[in-house]
């Protein structure tokens, strides 16, 4: 289908927006960030749709596609956070931001609080949670793909929760913390698609504040949001930072409960090297 599109059938990328029928009949396509141009292509697609047959609008009865998808590991009974990150400060390019999802099983997510939380309790959030956030999510990918940190790079990071209210099984709490990720660029995470060809020294620091509400009976969060505000230094090969933009510069993240809908089950950017043995590699 894509070979009929804007890039033709030669080698190279097939990125873009395509309008098609259920049987794979090509109707229209483009590759642009211009919304008006996309609307024109959608109109072209609709016009072409009017000329398609009923058969073209149906999937063949025996059609199947192997279900090899990372999102099949999405911990829907655990904790799924969505995140946003952006450059801060007066010089920030506000047109660029990125988003991601952070996954935790129910057992992992329980590490936000102690066993029997009481008002005033302070709890050091589990190392698994802190490491995952600091290594894979509190990174500088505002403008493009970057590299994760290794466990040793974030070893001084810490997050604390303080219980502010207990009403039966409902526990309300506040979050504060600080993370530090720093590397001289030495890659210690083994061979993968992420393995860089050279060293990229970099650092990310952040301070965290937020709050949440957890239901002990169901083991589910009914509220959770926190921000991380900090500083970035350095760059990586594909994170879109030109050599003149290596900081230090301000950067920020927002984490919140992901709404329950398909688009929020997109896997974390680093899912293929996540520190989670419950993720099934679909490849």
């Amino acid at each position: 289908m894509a070979n009929h599109g804007h890039y033709g059938g030669g080698g190279g990328t097939r990125q873009g927006i395509y309008i098609l029928t259920a049987d794979g009949t090509f109707l229209a396509s483009t590759n642009t960030l211009d919304a008006d141009a996309v609307v024109k292509v959608m109109a072209q697609g609709l016009a072409a749709w009017a000329d398609t047959t009923a058969a073209a609008r149906k999937l063949p009865a025996d059609w199947t596609l192997p279900r090899k998808r990372w999102e099949t590991s999405c911990p829907t009974t655990g904790l799924v956070l969505r995140s946003f990150n952006a450059d801060l400060g007066p010089e920030a390019d506000r047109k660029r931001l990125n988003r991601d999802h952070a996954w935790f099983t129910a057992a992992e997510a329980r590490g936000w609080l102690g066993t029997d939380p009481k008002v005033g309790d302070k709890h050091t959030v589990s190392q698994a949670i802190v490491e995952r956030l600091a290594r894979f999510h509190l990174v500088d990918n505002v403008r493009g793909q970057t590299l994760p940190f290794a466990p040793a790079d974030v070893a001084t990071s810490s997050i604390t929760t303080t219980v502010t209210k207990r009403d039966g099984d409902t526990v309300s709490f506040e979050i504060d913390g600080a993370t530090q990720g720093e590397t001289d660029g030495t890659w210690t995470l083994g061979a993968s698609d992420w393995t860089p060809s050279e060293k990229y020294p970099r650092a990310v620091t952040s301070k965290i504040v937020g709050h949440g509400r957890f239901d002990l009976a169901s083991g589910r969060f009914t509220a959770l949001e926190f921000v991380a505000l900090g500083e970035r230094t350095g760059r990586t090969n594909l994170n879109g930072r030109p050599k003149g933009d290596v900081g230090p510069a301000r950067i920020g993240w927002v984490f919140e409960l992901a709404p329950d809908r398909p688009a929020e089950r997109v896997a974390p950017a680093f899912v293929d090297i996540y520190d989670a043995d419950w993720i099934v590699d679909p490849r």
Partner: peptide, 9 residues
């Protein structure tokens, strides 16, 4: 269809 993270930039 996009390379990279599908909901990111």
């Amino acid at each position: 269809v996009m390379n990279g993270h599908p909901l990111g930039c």
